[in-house]
Computed example of a mutant assay.
Amino acid sequence: MMRQLLGRYPALLALSAQLCATVLVGVLVYLAAQFGVWRPSWLLAGVAQGLLAASLGQCFGLSRWWWWLNLAFVPALLALSGAPLSPWVFFGGFLLVLLLNWNSFGEQVPLYLSGTKCRRQLADLLTRQAPGFSFVDLGCGPAGTLLWLARQFPQAQFVGVETAPLTFVIAWLRSVPQSNCRIRYESLWRTDLSAFAVVYCFLSPAPMAALWDKARGQMAAGSWLISNSFEVPGVPADQQVELRDWRQSRLLLWRMPG
């Protein structure tokens, strides 16, 4: 039961990694003080804790972006502990990260941003659609990719859904001038996929099996499900497009059967 709880809430996995690393480094610092002559500085101990926490997070199965957060968290606190900063600064920073990555706590979907190569490949794929096609981005983030595509295909209709509060506000404000693009504050699980010719997502491994079941039940025959990097377990993609970016990303495409 504990494993299921931690798997559903990756923030708890990150917290577990931080606590384990803190205890281990604390024990090592204590032993060094009791039995040795070497005394590590607090900042050095913090860096060691960060490296250990980041490594443990990877062992626990956290996404790659958590590695940097686990690495920097304690060293950053120690580095800033002597600075004349109000505690509200730390609270504000935490709140900002929370509002931008709300999805990672409940839906296991962190904030991933589609790169320039991804946009261009998506545009190339969309040229094969009828001019008035409909496109939805499940978890659109700040809507950079969605708005870029909407400007490339003015006859098509683009929809983005997002549930991270601050990210949604940013995306909605950016979309106001673009008449063929709408942003909804809506969970991807409540989004009806039947109206879209193309469904795009850049999520995480965790929801892909459930998303496939949803797509099979709602999407029309001949429509496309496109996932950036993450596979549907046990279902080979009908087409793959290598993006050749620094993340070694790829687009995986499934055409809905009749």
Results as ranks from 00 to 15, higher is better:
residue 188 L to I: 07
residue 68 W to Y: 12
residue 216 R to N: 12
residue 103 N to Y: 10
residue 200 Y to M: 01
residue 36 G to P: 00
residue 180 N to R: 06
residue 204 S to V: 05
residue 16 S to M: 13
residue 112 Y to E: 03
residue 192 D to I: 01
residue 96 L to A: 12
residue 112 Y to Q: 04
residue 234 G to K: 05
residue 12 L to S: 10
residue 118 C to T: 15
residue 212 W to A: 11
residue 216 R to L: 15
residue 30 Y to I: 00
residue 10 P to N: 05
residue 65 W to I: 13
residue 112 Y to I: 02
residue 91 F to W: 14
residue 169 V to C: 12
residue 165 P to M: 09
residue 218 Q to H: 09
residue 94 F to T: 07
residue 135 F to R: 02
residue 252 L to C: 02
residue 46 G to F: 08
residue 164 A to E: 03
residue 238 D to H: 05
residue 138 L to S: 03
residue 200 Y to S: 01
residue 162 E to R: 07
residue 204 S to T: 11
residue 9 Y to A: 10
residue 110 P to C: 09
residue 210 A to N: 08
residue 32 A to E: 04
residue 149 L to Q: 02
residue 15 L to I: 13
residue 165 P to T: 09
residue 245 D to W: 07
residue 167 T to F: 10
residue 100 L to G: 05
residue 249 S to A: 14
residue 141 G to I: 05
residue 251 L to W: 00
residue 167 T to E: 10
residue 42 W to L: 12
residue 98 L to Q: 14
residue 81 S to A: 14
residue 51 L to A: 14
residue 71 L to I: 13
residue 111 L to T: 04
residue 187 S to Q: 07
residue 253 L to M: 08
residue 172 W to H: 10
residue 28 L to Q: 02
residue 219 M to K: 06
residue 98 L to Y: 14
residue 246 W to M: 11
residue 208 M to D: 01
residue 17 A to K: 11
residue 66 W to C: 08
residue 32 A to I: 00
residue 120 R to E: 06
residue 95 L to N: 04
residue 239 Q to G: 02
residue 203 L to M: 12
residue 233 P to M: 10
